[in-house]
């Protein structure tokens, strides 16, 4: 089908925070990164996808099925999930986890699960309590990859892990999408992780969607400039996205276009775009 996830005008009201009119589309076969500061609403969106919380308005369709539909429970068989906290009881071992998930998922493959466990070097004899944070996360990932999922939803799955493990794990997600029917939605505040492998980036800021774009197109849209305060004033107001003054220079993110000569410019990275867009006023 066309889109793995289709979110239209999604909104949710809490006391003191509102998720406001979010519309996103994750085309099948793509990886979408959801970025934003802590508390921006990324985890809220993921909870809304699974109906852990009820939406105030809008619609969500996952793998072609409305998530309030009765059939959605069956569709969850094809969705692999990794949350930011490891979620198995501490007293169990890998074989217990295997037995548990076998009775829960329709297309569970014990062989695949143990293959991933071996690949990740997870100990078969230790109880989950004795696993390090990285090992716990890898267990959740092994589970997510072992039941024939077509869509992976990852909520801060790599936070708190060291760079070596993060790299291994990103490889796993990258390989998952070699099949064009497989899609990934990954939320993270470690943007460097997402920068390489994502096809789309969606930026959530204070409950609103600032942009959702193809990553390359996004990076082509802006330039990061280093200049003086006077130079900044020469630019069109509408061209400036955000700026930061320091003792020796002014740094600004501007829309790609003609610039007065003498201004040093470079290609921004996604983190730059996010930081400058978050600045309140110009």
């Amino acid at each position: 089908m066309k889109n793995a996830i289709e979110i239209r005008n999604l909104s949710k009201e809490f006391k003191g925070f509102t998720l406001n009119n979010i519309s996103l589309e994750l085309p099948s076969g793509c990886i979408m990164g959801l970025i934003g500061e802590n508390g921006a609403g990324k985890s809220t969106i993921i909870k809304l996808i699974f109906n852990s919380i009820k939406r105030s308005g809008g619609s969500i369709e996952v793998l072609g099925c409305d998530n309030l539909d009765k059939d959605f429970e069956k569709v969850k068989n094809e969705i692999g999930v990794v949350l930011d906290e490891p979620c198995f009881p501490e007293c169990v071992r890998l074989k217990d986890i295997n037995a548990m998930m076998k009775s829960i998922y329709k297309n569970w493959s014990s062989d695949e699960f143990f293959a991933y466990c071996d690949k990740f070097g997870l100990p078969r004899d230790k109880r989950f309590k004795g696993f390090s944070k990285g090992m716990k996360m890898k267990t959740s990932i092994a589970v997510a990859m072992s039941h024939g999922a077509r869509l992976l939803v990852l909520d801060e799955a790599t936070s708190g892990l060291d760079p070596i493990i993060r790299d291994e794990i990103l490889d796993v997600f990258n390989d998952f999408t070699r099949d064009e029917n497989h899609s990934v939605l990954i939320s993270s505040h470690i943007i460097s992780d997402l920068e390489k492998i994502c096809d789309y980036i969606a930026f959530i800021h204070k409950g609103s969607l600032r942009f959702c774009e193809e990553k390359d197109a996004l990076l082509d849209k802006y330039l990061l400039i280093h200049c003086t305060d006077e130079d900044l004033k020469k630019l069109q107001h509408s061209q400036i996205v955000g700026y930061k003054r320091s003792r020796y220079e002014t740094e600004a993110l501007v829309k790609n276009g003609s610039l007065p000569s003498g201004i040093i410019s470079e290609k921004p990275c996604i983190e730059d775009i996010m930081l400058f867009m978050s600045k309140e006023s110009v």
Partner: peptide, 17 residues
């Protein structure tokens, strides 16, 4: 397009372009 993207660890859209 897809396997090149995955082997280079970049976006599919980039290789497609």
């Amino acid at each position: 397009i897809r396997s090149l993207a995955k082997d280079l660890r970049i976006s599919v859209i980039t290789t497609k372009r």
